[in-house]
Design a protein around this nucleic acid. Structure first.
Lengths: 257, 257
DNA sequence: TGAATAGTGTCTCTGAGACAATATGCA
DNA sequence: TGCATATTGTCTCAGAGACACTATTCA
């Protein structure tokens, strides 16, 4: 209650919240090179970063990273700050997606939590894991965290479930797949990333469909090398595969067209 | 700070928020019957309900309806309560979409606002307008509220802009069009509603495309009458038009399929 | 040679897109 | 009769879907 014009303002005598934190669901995709007879695509898994709580409440349990907002920053800035503290990186994709405010959700009092999700390349998290208190940081697969899995602090199980729903939807409707890929990638890599996030996504003629530029309205483009020739990679295969990149063009999908 | 297990918990000595309100962007589509030579489609306009503030701050200015949450309810329940107070109805579509927390956004202090949008059929709002303090309730077209239009209290201009973006996206990706339509409607009505919300949506062969049930995967279905014959309406036209309804089926749209 | 990925060939059928033409029924 | 909406006819061409087939490279 700061403003000078507030002179006539009758202060509310109601209870006010005890805190407004931001919690962050940090997703990453781990890639594990397989030792096969010939070069092959890596094994990919979608994981969530959790930290082990050191304090009451839920001491010793796994929880989402997060922290309280202060009156000098927006909730988005709070989340950015916490994300940077946790991962050391700032320039990653992060979005707000929901608020959690059910009475009793936090034993410390009336605490309204604002949930974000972030998409981080695994390279950034490797450093974090290697730092001092590595035992208190964990990467968990989505299946480990399902309804029958590990029990989490607060309502964080629900939060992660909602976050998953969000990124599954966005994976198919936007180009967030690029957050998990290098700038240039093969269509098999892209297909693998989409399937890692949305397991029941299947598309028999995926490569062919993505190549027919006419229909895809230019979401992807072929990468050319310095000589203007199509640039290829044989990182994951014997036969070299064409490299692609996202153009930034986003078609407007619609039920009605 | 209520819980008994809090015995060891060191109370935070930081400032806490001064309030957590829910604000609601109530959209409706007004329909105006035109007096043409023959029966014709009505004129439709997308409007937002605002109320004139009676108290400091921003006294006398137009603002979104809303109010403070208390510690006995979730933010969603707060919004439902406010929506019912404002419109008298409860069973309408309402969704949470964003949080507004920029420092200084409210002269009363540190106040974090949670924004919802609701889609209400105009019939419900007619009653509200006809009630006692009608002068303090207004329906404004989206263009009146653009960046050059009426100045609103708080950051409500920005909130409405974000809400618009949301419902434009959802209008094309989900079946929220049904919130503005009767249970049974003609394809021209549907097309008009979509265009009212998303002005640059155009689809030359709209009717034909919607009829080809094979591709639309059954989002819509023809309404049949008691005898099993296709049910038609001539409310807006000389030649009777087939009635349709939403089935509830929602195809999964994707960039990659 | 076989493993593992990266494609192409070929076929059928549906739908998109454009636009003209016709249907309906009432003021 | 002409208006205003609703619908069908008629093209052509692109893409979807299925599945078999070929290409590439290396251990």
């Amino acid at each position: 209650m700061v403003d000078e014009n507030a002179s006539n303002y009758t202060a509310r005598k109601y209870r006010t919240p005890d805190g407004a934190p931001a919690d962050i669901v940090i997703f990453t995709i781990t890639t594990e090179i397989l030792n096969r007879a010939t070069k092959s695509l890596p094994k990919r898994e979608l994981k969530v970063l959790l930290i082990k709580r050191k304090l009451w409440p839920y001491e010793g349990m796994w929880a989402l990273p997060g922290g309280f907002s202060n009156d000098q920053e927006s909730m988005y800035e709070t989340a950015r700050r916490e994300l940077e503290e946790e991962t050391g990186v700032n320039a990653v994709h992060m979005e707000y997606f929901n608020v959690y405010s059910k009475p009793g959700r936090d034993p410390r009092g009336w605490i309204i939590s604002h949930a974000f999700f972030a998409l981080v390349h695994e390279d950034y998290l490797v450093e974090r894991k290697a730092s001092d208190d590595a035992a208190d940081v964990g990467l968990f697969t989505v299946s480990e965290l399902g309804s029958k899995g590990l029990e989490l602090a607060f309502d964080h199980q629900e939060v992660i479930g909602d976050a998953l729903e969000q990124i599954r939807s966005k994976m198919l409707l936007t180009s967030i797949a690029k957050e998990f890929l290098p700038d240039e990638f093969t269509l098999s890599e892209l297909y693998q990333v989409v399937q890692t996030v949305v397991p029941d996504f299947e598309e028999a003629n995926f490569i062919r469909k993505m190549k027919s530029t006419q229909s895809r309205s230019g979401v992807l483009e072929q990468v050319l090398d310095a000589k203007g020739e199509p640039k290829k990679s044989n990182e994951f295969s014997q036969r070299a595969a064409q490299l692609y990149r996202f153009t930034g063009v986003m078609p407007r999908l619609s039920l009605y067209s």
